[in-house]
């Protein structure tokens, strides 16, 4: 069921004007703090009333300026950054507050069995978020909203929850709107990516397409800008301490033992870590070298150039200085080799 959002609101200094369609899968809203992401999710949940516009879920109008369906009639599951569990109820009572749809299965998937009799006060941050996710799912929502559900957790706690979210998103036929400003969550979860800046949609589309476009790069930390590629774990070379992935551009090597053989994973190739060579190199330490054709060269806001490559089926791009591009005479249509270190492309 498609969610259509077209809302306008003035909140303090921010002029919010958002148009987006949310299909099935995970749609990540990404952008700096104060850009209006949470306001959008609150409007979808019915917790914030926009000044004008329309919100539709399938054929059902949730908001159109005159009517505004109250939150308890919207059937939107909402996982908040601060969990918002009911402190006076046990975990079991929290979970079933909105219904007990798929109780056993959800308890099992989220690993909540041990916690059922406890109260929120005795839970870790990661456990609280798992309960909050379970509680939202058991209300059998039509759509799941998650507002930076991992932001309040430290690193290890994050990895305690993220796989659960990924599994829920992959196995349930439930559109998910996921707000974050952490790149690891984008690369691991997103099907669609909507970049929100200063109350407006700056870019939107399938995550791979958005990340492949250097124009969107300015919204990410420098370390995070780059193409996202989908690979499959081909084999582990235990002796050499590397993992070999199959990708649309040929084998890619990663350090260490990553994933299980046959499992798909996404790899972010940071544009700043990609080096281009006109000829195949030898005697360099970087393990990954793939053949590619230059598709286009674009200017980046920081003065550098983005060299967009087509490596067989994969679009990737490299950030180079104008000096390098001029000295080597790179231009569209040229064959090059893209080289990057195995250690630069950690699994995401």
């Amino acid at each position: 069921m498609m969610l259509q959002v077209d809302i306008q609101a003035r909140i303090g200094e921010l002029d919010l004007d958002i148009q987006m369609d949310v299909p099935a899968g995970v749609t990540v809203l990404f952008g700096p703090s104060g850009a209006g992401k949470t306001t959008v999710t609150n409007a979808i949940a019915g917790l914030f009333r926009p000044d004008s516009g329309q919100i539709k879920l399938g054929d059902k109008v949730l908001f159109d300026g005159r009517q505004n369906v109250p939150p308890h009639h919207r059937l939107m599951g909402y996982v908040f950054q601060d969990a918002r569990l009911f402190p006076h109820y046990t975990v079991r009572q929290n979970l079933t507050y909105g219904g007990n749809h798929d109780f056993d299965q959800i308890v099992d998937v989220l690993g909540l069995g041990e916690l059922l009799a406890r109260r929120p006060a005795g839970l870790s941050g990661g456990e609280k978020q798992r309960v909050a996710l379970g509680r939202a799912l058991m209300s059998n929502p039509k759509l799941l909203l998650m507002d930076e559900p991992l932001a309040a957790l430290d690193g290890p706690r994050k990895s305690e929850v993220l796989p659960f979210i990924a599994e829920i998103a992959a196995t349930r036929n439930l559109p998910v709107i996921y707000v974050t400003h952490a790149m690891a969550e984008v690369t691991q979860l997103a099907d669609q990516l909507v970049l929100i800046d200063n109350g407006k949609v700056a870019h939107k589309g399938p995550v791979i397409d958005v990340l492949a476009d250097p124009i969107a790069a300015k919204y990410f930390a420098k370390r995070d800008a780059g193409a996202l590629i989908e690979c499959v774990v081909e084999r582990h070379d235990i002796d050499e301490g590397i993992t070999v992935l199959a990708s649309g551009a040929g084998p890619i090597l990663l350090p260490g033992q990553v994933g299980r053989v046959g499992v798909g994973l996404r790899l972010l190739i940071p544009a700043q870590d990609v080096m281009l060579s006109k000829t195949a190199l030898q005697g360099q330490s970087a393990l990954n070298m793939i053949e590619a054709v230059i598709d286009d060269i674009k200017s980046l806001p920081n003065g550098n150039l983005a060299v967009i490559l087509q490596a067989k089926e994969l679009p990737i791009w490299a950030e180079l200085t104008p000096l390098s591009v001029r000295k080597l005479g790179f231009e569209a249509g040229q064959n090059v080799f893209a080289i990057f270190k195995a250690t630069a492309v950690g699994p995401v």
């Binding site: 949940a45 939150p71 599951g77 918002r84 009911f86 219904g99 509680r135 939202a136």
Partner: peptide, 23 residues
């Protein structure tokens, strides 16, 4: 009372009356 907890109850389908009585 954190009004966010009441909002959470509303998103779970609780009417204002139920939110008041149970939260």
């Amino acid at each position: 009372v954190d009004s966010g907890i009441e909002a959470a109850a509303a998103t779970l389908g609780a009417s204002p009356r139920r939110v008041f009585l149970t939260v």
